[in-house]
Simulated assay, not measured.
Amino acid sequence: MNKGLVLLIAVGVVIMIALSSLFIVDEREKALVLQFGQIKAVKEDPGLGFKIPLIQEVVRYDDRIRALDTPATEVTPSDDRRLVVDAFARYRISDVVQFRQAVGVGGLRAAEDRLEGILNPVIREVLGSEGVTSNTILSADRATLMARITTQARARARPLGLEVVDVRLKQTNLPEQNLEATFSRMRAEREREAADEIARGEEAAQRVRAQADRTVVELVSEAQKDADIIRGESDARRNAIFAEAFGQDEEFFEFRRSLDAYERAIQGRNSTLVINPDDAFFDYLKSDTGRN
């Protein structure tokens, strides 16, 4: 083997060793340099880093804020009305050395399992504390409760090298076994309200009908009174006219009244009368000049 090839191989090996001793950390990461599992260096700022090839290794951790959805947790507020709370947390690795020592090689998965074990008890503890009712959890005061949960969770997660940014309550529901009973109560309440509305409407309708009936009776009575007055005045006027006519010509008045009697007697389809021919009723029919 000639010296040029040996030199080329040697240069290549040196270059490979030099490259394997370099590593880059970007702005989204933090890195630890480990030697046989022991932490030898911490690289938190972005840029170029160095390690001993073949002996040391680089472990990178995400430095961004991450989200963790916790499993639904059943809580019992002070009013004993059980609720199922669905929450999520945002966290980041604040101390990579402490994080590595706390979770070891398990990494983020192990850390999130540990964080869930912190969040669930804190949520139950805060939401089940004295003075916290289901109405408080469902009202605008839940912001204060979330702040309390965040403060307590942050303190408990700090030994893991984690910083809990905040904890939010996504949903708050009734347990499945209580939903049907709640819906039944809601239906019963709505049916009762509907029955009350129907009863009030029927009562109002009866008042309107009674008022209308009374108005009809009053109007009919008033009209009947006016009609009786007019009829009486008409009868009086007619009688006055008859009396005046009788006073002027008694014979003509008698003749006129007999004609009216004839007209009334033969009204309708029946024109047959059974009557004594000598009766005074026929006086004006017996003679052209008058009564005999």
Rank of each mutant, 00 (worst) to 15 (best):
T136F: 06
A240D: 02
E222N: 10
A265G: 04
L34K: 04
G49M: 08
A143K: 14
S94R: 14
K3M: 12
Q152L: 10
V216T: 13
E244P: 00
E176V: 13
I118A: 00
L7R: 14
N120L: 13
I123E: 03
G161M: 04
L145T: 04
L259Y: 01
V105Q: 15
G4L: 09
I55M: 12
L115T: 11
V6I: 15
K43N: 08
D279Q: 02
D196I: 13
I123A: 05
L127H: 10
P277F: 03
D26I: 15
R231S: 12
R190W: 15
L285K: 05
S271H: 13
G107L: 05
Q35C: 12
V164M: 02
R154S: 12
A188L: 11
D213S: 12
D113P: 01
D283N: 14
V216Y: 04
E29D: 10
P175K: 01
F23R: 15
R92V: 13
Y61E: 13
V122Q: 01
F253I: 00
E44I: 15
S78F: 15
V11A: 15
E112L: 10
A245W: 04
E251R: 13
F242W: 07
E27T: 10
V96D: 02
T70Q: 02
R66S: 09
V97M: 08
Q248F: 04
E233W: 00
I275V: 14
S184V: 08
I93L: 05
E193C: 01
I123M: 04
V11F: 07
Q38Y: 02
E125K: 14
G131S: 06
I241T: 04
E233R: 15
A87R: 02
E197R: 08
Q38D: 12
T289F: 05
S134W: 03
L127Y: 07
L83R: 07
R257W: 09
E202Q: 11
E203A: 11
R257N: 06
A155H: 00
V42D: 02
V25R: 13
Y284S: 11
T133S: 15
K3C: 05
Q248H: 02
L119M: 07
S221R: 04
A212D: 05
E163I: 06
A143I: 05
E222Q: 09
A204K: 08
D283T: 09
D228C: 00
A188F: 02
V164A: 04
I17S: 06
R291M: 14
S234N: 05
A147W: 00
S21L: 05
E244M: 08
D260T: 11
M186Q: 06
I55Y: 06
A18M: 09
F255I: 10
R207W: 07
S258H: 15
R158C: 01
S94Q: 15
E74K: 12
V59N: 02
T272Q: 04
T182S: 13
D228L: 10
K3S: 12
Q177K: 11
G104V: 09
S134D: 14
A204W: 00
